[in-house]
Structures are given as C-alpha cells and as structure tokens.
Design a protein around this nucleic acid. Structure first.
Length: 204
DNA sequence: GAAATGATCGTCT
DNA sequence: GACGATCATTTCA
C-alpha cells in the first residue's frame, strides 16, 4: 500500500485505513509504538463544524492545510496535547484525530510517562495517546512518512474489523448524516466505552 | 458503577 | 473575554 498516496484522500476515507496501523515515535528517552484502535475523521472548511479548520485557516490549524502525512498537534483545555495525521493534498484541510491505541512497544516508557496506569489505559483517549507516545506541541508539523522521529506501518487486516459510528446526539433527527465520524476496531479493550461529546451542562 | 466538576492556557472574536 | 476535538478526581447511588 502506498500510504503517501492514500493520505491524499478525505479524512473520512483515510480514517479506517489507519486503524490497526502502528505509529512509532523515537525520542531521546526511547521508542514507543502504538497500534491505533480508535480514530476520528475531521474534514475541512464548512463541512464539519467540529473541525478546527471549519472556520478557515488560522495560525494554529495551519498544519492541517499542509501536505498529507504531517503530524498536527494542538494544545487544548489548558493542559492536554492531541495528535492528528493530516490528509488531503496541500492547501486543503483535513485530518484524522488519533483517539486511542494499544501500546505494542516501549510499554515501560509509556507507563512511566502516564504515571503507571494499567496497560489498557496507557493510550486511551487522544491526550493520553499523545502523552504515552511523548508527542508535544514541538512535534507539530513533523513528517510521519519521511521524518526520522516518526514512522507508521498500516495493517490492512485490522482495517477490516472496523466499527463506524456517527456520534450520538449530533443530529437527534434523521436529517443529514451525523459527524464527526468515529472509527474503532471491534472488541478492543483499549477503546472501551467512550463518553460521547456532550456540551457541558451546568446543573442549575 | 456512573455522573458531575475542576484544572488551566493558547487561540480566536 | 470566552471557550475548547480532555482527563482525573471527587461525589452520589
């Protein structure tokens, strides 16, 4: 499979292909590799209200408009870093958020970085996955396909056991299809029930 | 076990 | 000045 070419497709098509892929990050501390078990597609301007690129290009999301195969990392909620893989040709924004994975190499280092949580939780959740891999804002714009620090290795077989689900509560009504699009590998303990994104509601 | 809530700061309006 | 592609902890059942 020519991954570089495959990444020119929209996020919706790229996301399922990334399931089961092993993403490795080499740092001075060591190497950690994660087998992706849950991802989510984010399209570009005007297509996905949940996308950072929905409102057009800004300083932060500039990487999303870059060439496919780049790593787009962002900082959110004052303390968390999340990682995406950019797709679509340069100039068009789209990315796949890496939501969860199973640590397949460097578990000891990952566990240290995560404060010794159980293996199934090492990389469960976008910010946790980034933390386990040692990904920071400094890695924004890194080339996963050609860089030295990162590498990714797709697994076509895992890509077959996919469960796709529209997010609960987005439409509430039959209308248009719901987004964003979330994909996961069936029966993965590392992906167990994830709380659907619901707007914070304060009890009166 | 499930649900609510605080933490914390860069980015955008 | 407000909010967010979240997480860990504290509560309540």
């Amino acid at each position: 499979m020519d991954l570089r070419q495959a990444l020119e497709a929209p996020a919706l098509e790229v996301a399922p292909m990334l399931l089961g892929a092993v993403l490795a990050h080499r740092s001075s501390d060591g190497t950690v590799a994660v087998r992706l078990t849950e991802v989510e597609a984010y399209e570009g301007e005007g297509q996905d209200p949940g996308s950072h690129a929905h409102r057009g290009r800004t300083r932060r999301n500039a990487t999303m408009f870059g060439r496919p195969g780049l790593l787009y990392t962002y900082f959110t909620y004052g303390m968390h870093t999340c990682a995406n893989l950019v797709c679509l040709p340069e100039g068009r924004a789209a990315a796949v958020l890496l939501r969860a994975g199973e640590v397949v190499a460097g578990a000891e280092l990952a566990s240290f970085r995560r404060g010794g949580v159980p293996a199934t939780r090492l990389a469960r959740g976008p910010a946790n996955l980034a933390s386990a891999l040692g990904i920071t804002l400094a890695d924004d714009g890194a080339d996963v396909l050609a860089g030295e620090a990162f590498s990714i290795d797709p697994d076509p077989e895992d890509a077959a056991r996919i469960v796709a689900g529209p997010r609960v509560g987005v439409s509430g009504e039959g209308g248009s299809d719901a987004y964003p699009w979330r994909f996961r590998i069936a029966g993965e303990p590392t992906v167990s029930a994830y709380r659907p994104a619901v707007a914070r509601v304060r009890s009166a």
